[in-house]
Design a protein around this nucleic acid. Structure first.
Lengths: 315, 315
DNA sequence: AATCTCGATGTTACCGGTAACATAACGGTG
DNA sequence: CACCGTTATGTTACCGGTAACATCGAGATT
């Protein structure tokens, strides 16, 4: 007990004792066992982050923001990748709860009912990030993917580009992708444009898939005048494909992306896209979690971090 | 005890009892406490991964490979970002050891002596990944950054490009970056080329920094004929800068990268680079860790995963 | 000198699992 | 019917911390 005190509350121990304890601890190479501490305190100091995958830079930045923020408050991040599957997410959440994480960050707002039930029952702070939840499990940080996609699409429409194509990520178990497509469709509809499903391609979320999708679109609909891509990764892939075919951007085909990744401003020509505060989502989620874990109540449990349209050169 | 058995070793319990236990567990929403289990078993089922940062796709793929592999064996990955600092790494390792992780993955081979001492004393499996260690703390998976960089540089030299520029990441606390520069210099030296330090730029590791570095190089040394970039991220940034200045690649300036990220094959013109098996490094590290944690000995504690030169269009 | 006070240190129990050992229940055998 | 082996269940102690309470010792107060 004196040892515990010497290390955790030095002022409660005589100086000589403290010095002696510290010396011996050093000699022995003693490291406190946070597993045991977690067991007694019923608090592990772990925050779980459930994400679709780690290799996506959008997600990586959110995780980085979350990690930095909780780390500053003495917490350690436990990350798990679900591979864009709600059942994978459920398994991950179950595993995290078994580890008695103090809080959980979830990507997106569509979850299995078991996931929701477990989290509700556990009563730990939980933030759903990325998309805005009207009725979150607990708290939420994000922006409206649908509104944002509408905004980009409207820009393409207003500039007079017709016909419009769409390239997006698989919507299955990915509410952000689904909502972005909905936003695209909503903008078309409100402008009286009929969406041609054969000009909408859904695919994996990487450069290569973006390029392939663009290739398919150009083959099947050479008349396509502009393409809205629901992620910059896809947009840049599409740009490269157009460049390989020597199709000038935006003279012959306009392209708009979504996310404003680093590459969007660097690629030539620079990509017109929609900036979403990725790091900020993670940071904000981390703040909310830490607030709650510090025993304070979070006054705004649903935070809209907004987005910003960035007009550049591709559309 | 009967409950423990019913859940962990069902065959040791009468069927009726097992069914009853399962039903009650479900009703109660019982989740086993892995913290407590970890305490008794002296095994947490956690593997720690210490990486410089999460937003780099090279690193992210290694982490993904590691995560997938250990997850398949029932382990959970704990990740920590050091921000390219060995003292940050030391703090991270200390934290992980306090959490009693069963094994640790470290990025690179340069560590503080305290880090090495702690890991040695802990006696847990430890893999150093990315670069090859001659004398690893425990095990290592990687390839020779220096040899690989020499190979790429030699290609540039053999094609007759002169003078040669270099763009790389900060070498401080980053042995991969340091070794790549050494490889560049070694190739130059053995070809009798004197390296002009003013044509070697070191900078942050992102697209924007690559572009800026290229800009500086082109401004100060317009005669530069080829640039070796020690990472594809830098190379692509440099390409974009050249394209913005309408400098044709490779007609007027040749560029070679390193890593063979997805983007290398997609960018136009496709980037000449060096492929390193990123996911494989993580996978292999995971395998070695799991082998050891399963009580088996790893016969080859130093694995050279090799690399492959990929000639494309930029050089 | 007896009592009080306060800081320093010691003792006990508990967190939620599990290993090791103890006991109970039961059908079969000589 | 005593004895056995087998299977099912129960008991105890321990993993490494910490809260709560107990004790101790020394100087201050009466």
């Amino acid at each position: 007990m004196t040892v515990t005190r010497a290390l955790n509350a030095p002022h409660k121990v005589a100086k000589a004792t403290r010095v002696r304890v510290e010396a011996i601890a050093r000699d022995l190479g003693y490291t406190p066992d946070l597993t045991a501490r977690g067991l007694t305190l019923q608090r592990t100091g772990l925050v779980g982050a459930v994400v679709p995958l780690l290799t996506n830079s959008l997600i990586a930045e959110i995780v980085q923001g979350l990690s930095d923020t909780v780390a500053r408050n003495g917490f350690q991040l436990l990350v798990g990748a679900t591979g864009f599957s709600t059942s994978g997410e459920e398994a991950m959440v179950r595993a995290f709860l078994s580890r008695r994480v103090d809080a959980i960050y979830l990507t997106g707002i569509s979850h299995t009912s078991a996931t929701i039930a477990m989290l509700r029952q556990s009563r730990i702070p939980c933030v759903e990030g990325g998309n805005l939840a009207r009725k979150p499990i607990d708290m939420a940080v994000g922006y409206s993917s649908k509104d944002a996609a509408t905004k980009v699409t409207r820009y393409l429409i207003d500039r007079g580009y017709r016909p419009l194509g769409y390239i997006g990520a698989w919507p299955k178990d990915n509410d952000r992708a689904r909502d972005r497509r909905r936003g695209f469709e909503a903008a078309c509809k409100s402008a009286g444009i009929v969406v041609d499903d054969s000009m909408c391609v859904e695919t994996d979320l990487d450069l290569h898939a973006g390029a392939r999708a663009m290739g398919m679109l150009l083959d099947s609909h050479p008349e396509v005048r502009a393409v809205f891509c629901s992620a910059d990764t896809l947009a840049v892939g599409a740009m490269f494909e157009a460049q390989r075919r020597c199709i000038p951007i935006p003279a012959r085909i306009a392209i708009a992306g979504f996310d404003d990744l680093d590459i969007a401003s660097q690629v030539v020509p620079a990509l017109t896209t929609l900036r979403v505060p990725r790091y900020e989502i993670g940071r904000q989620a981390g703040e909310m979690i830490c607030e709650r874990l510090a025993g304070r109540t979070v006054t705004t449990p649903i935070v809209d971090v907004g987005y910003e349209f960035v007009a550049r050169l591709t559309a």
